[in-house]
């Protein structure tokens, strides 16, 4: 107990617990806005409200745990590999995926895929702009061959934004 008390709260547990509390509350509050009904005749809000409440409580327990020494395996894991978050690499990946979703319908598969794979490839450790461009070009061709030529998916290569 004494050692646990001296320790500073275990940050990953605080964060995980915090996210669970936030999401739990969001679902519970959102659920309460729908018709909750009763245990006998449950409305659409009943289960989300109930589960959201449970998640909130679990989140609070995890936060409490963080002050009492934290979750041991996670702590050891965290000590082993305390690598920094690869912020801009992750951002490139996410941007690439979002770009694909946003433009594939309008621009068509070919240009969207090229831009997306370029953005994503830029995130690699050993890839500069030129290498990323080469990777993107190669992958675009590969994907088009696999999905459009071999699998015959009905995805227009060029979309309506580019004219028919």
């Amino acid at each position: 107990m004494a050692t646990a008390g001296r320790r500073r709260p275990f940050v990953p547990d605080l964060l995980a617990g915090g996210v669970f509390v936030l999401l739990g509350l969001a679902f519970a509050i959102g659920g309460a806005r729908y018709d909750v009904g009763s245990a006998l005749r449950m409305g659409p809000g009943y289960v989300p409200l109930l589960l959201g409440g449970i998640l909130t409580v679990l989140g609070l327990v995890i936060i409490a745990q963080a002050f009492l020494g934290g979750d041991q395996p996670a702590r050891e894991l965290a000590d082993q590999e305390r690598a920094p978050v690869p912020w801009w690499r992750a951002a490139l990946l996410v941007a690439g995926v979002l770009y694909f979703g946003a433009t594939v319908r309008g621009m068509g598969l070919a240009p969207t895929l090229f831009v997306m794979t370029f953005l994503v490839a830029l995130a690699g450790h050993r890839s500069g702009v030129v290498r990323a461009l080469i990777t993107a070009a190669g992958l675009t061709v590969l994907c088009l061959v696999v999905f459009v030529y071999l699998l015959q998916l009905r995805l227009p290569l060029f979309g309506t934004w580019l004219g028919r």
């Binding site: 990946l93 690439g96 995926v97 694909f100 979703g101 895929l113 997306m116 794979t117 994503v120 490839a121 995130a123 690699g124 450790h125 050993r126 890839s127 290498r131 990777t135 993107a136 190669g138 992958l139 675009t140 590969l142 994907c143 696999v146």
Partner: peptide, 12 residues
């Protein structure tokens, strides 16, 4: 650095 863009492209 070639494999992971391929995974993402195929998955998307």
């Amino acid at each position: 650095e070639v494999l992971f863009p391929a995974i993402i492209a195929f998955a998307a």
